[in-house]
Amino acid sequence: MNGGHDLGGMHGLGPIDAEPEASEPVFHADWERRVFAMTLACASHGRWTIDGSRHARERQNPADYIRHSYFENWLAGLEKLLVESELVTAEELAQGQPAGPVDAAQAERVLKADKVEPAMTKGGPTLMDVPLEPRFRPGDRVHVRNINPTGHTRSPRYARGKFGTVEVDHGVHVFADKSAHGTREGQHLYGVRFAAQELWGTDASAHDSVRIDLWDDHLEPA
């Protein structure tokens, strides 16, 4: 979707204003800690994918997405996922109180403290062992398809319609655009290089480039 999250190339958002590295804390308030941890813990129920959680954050009014701090967007995304997946009802969320007893089957899936370390160490690889012919090879010139889906996509707006060169085939990975909507499908994922001048015109440096990871469905032969 062409949402407030798709920020590459936008102007007017101000200076970066980085805090000094040596003194920046990991979290800036206790509520940020809780939102971070609740988001990771709730994923253990298996009701959504990482792509689905990104898409939940994106589906806000773009003005809200940009104005809110990072963990406010995580909070908004988590609330949306919990209600949409029916882990909680909208009424429960509004009241902060359960409407019924604990669901025992659900409670089985809860991430326990002693499982945090193994779960985080294991992670969630997206590489799939699927015999699928790549549509493109390193060195191929490609054109990024002009798509404007209202659902999730990892093809950023600034790359659509542009020409680039495939540099590497990362293998078959879960296709994020479909995974966000509940379908686990593998496609070849490529690292594609774009000259800065192709993306931004002749005001950009002739030496610079941007590398973007794109799946088969994002690309067509140039």
Partner: peptide, 23 residues
Amino acid sequence: VKSLESLLVDKGLVDPEALDALI
């Protein structure tokens, strides 16, 4: 955030000790 956490704990959907371990 507090309201959400207490709801999730009361519904048995998160273990507060796991949250502390993640943090």
